[in-house]
């Protein structure tokens, strides 16, 4: 889902551009480090592959078809940092040459698909990709990458004050789940076919990851994503929830102060609160991915 220009409110696109720039810069340095410049053609041609892959249709049933998005597949084959760079290059070419996605919204699309989508997709693979649940991990990664990207996009639109009725939101979510399952299924079958052609194509994560730790990380990621959606859809909801639960007033202040407790003029407008709550949520997911990424790289180099 490529957000065009004109849909996001200024604080949202500006903040996401500001977040995407250092994130992509950091990933570029990491990918460059891991690959040296000798592999530049590889990343470029694999980006072209993802473009082309979107023309090969997969039957979904009842006459409809879907296609690969590719973030998780790239992460499994090139590594997550290189996948981020490749996806970013894809998004930039799509925005410039194909008018698919906006220029000011490039930061948002990059964060959604190239940064968080790719890293969320890589996480299950990193955790369980070596064990006996490998197939499941590959599926989960594909599905998660699409789910996280789509949820972030909707959250950003909601934060920007685009009104989406509850029923429409429900239908969209059903569609997202279907798209996520499809991406998971495609990723699994392509990974399977690739390993038959040449086992070296798909990376081998190290074995012996703690199951509990992985489950907690994954649950945290999912919670943060879903929480973000709720926060951006109804920032007041958190407050009323706290009241209904009978939490003492000081607890409520602690819970809600950062976003809605202060009566400062700039947080009075509903959309500002939505935006702030949502951006804080994205910030949390971002931080989680950075921390996970750091740990991953440290273990990888150790």
């Amino acid at each position: 889902m490529h957000i065009p220009d004109g849909f996001l409110s200024t604080p949202v696109w500006a903040a996401l551009d500001a977040a995407a720039a250092p994130a992509v810069g950091y990933m570029a340095r990491r990918a460059q480090h891991a690959f040296d410049e000798s592999k530049i053609p590889l990343l470029g041609v694999m980006g072209a592959f993802v473009f082309a892959a979107q023309m090969i249709n997969f039957p979904v049933g009842i006459g409809t078809t879907g296609h690969l998005v590719g973030g998780a597949l790239l992460a499994y084959t090139l590594g997550p940092a290189a996948a981020t760079i490749t996806m970013t290059a894809i998004l930039a070419i799509q925005a410039l040459v194909f008018q698919d996605g906006g220029i000011l919204a490039l930061g948002a699309n990059t964060i959604n698909m190239a940064v968080l989508g790719v890293w969320a997709g890589y996480l299950p693979f990193h955790l369980w990709g070596a064990g006996k649940n490998r197939g499941l991990a590959v599926f989960a990664g594909g599905a998660l990458s699409v789910l996280v990207s789509a949820t972030l996009a909707v959250a950003e639109l909601l934060m920007s004050g685009v009104r989406i009725a509850g029923s429409v939101l429900g239908v969209s979510f059903a569609l997202f789940l279907a798209a996520a399952a499809l991406e998971g299924a495609i990723t699994v079958s392509v990974v399977g076919a690739l390993e038959k052609i040449q086992p070296g194509f798909v990376r081998k994560p190290r074995e012996g990851r703690s199951f509990a730790l992985g489950a907690v990380a994954l649950a945290a990621l999912l919670l943060a994503t879903v929480g973000l959606l709720f926060a951006s859809a109804a920032p007041d909801g958190i407050q009323s929830l706290a009241q209904q639960a009978g939490v003492a007033s000081h607890a409520r202040t602690v819970l809600t102060t950062p976003f809605s407790g202060y009566e400062a003029a700039f947080v009075r407008a509903a959309w500002t609160r939505k935006a702030l709550a949502g951006l804080a949520g994205i910030g949390l997911i971002y931080a989680a991915c950075v921390v996970i990424g750091r740990t991953v790289s440290r273990r990888g180099s150790a």
Binding site: S38, K39, P41, L42, G44, V45, M46, A48, F49, A52, A53, I56, N57, F58, P59, T65, L68, T77, A185, I186, S189, V190, G192, A193, L194, K196, I197, Q198, F201
Partner: peptide
């Protein structure tokens, strides 16, 4: 447009392998 699922996945994998090979060839040419 209505390739069976596995056939489509196989086609994608072959396209992937070819692209990978092409990238290596480009690198060699460089």
């Amino acid at each position: 447009g209505r390739l069976r699922f596995r056939v489509a996945a196989g086609a994608l994998a072959v396209l992937f392998a070819r692209s990978y090979g092409r990238a290596q060839e480009i690198h060699g040419a460089m």
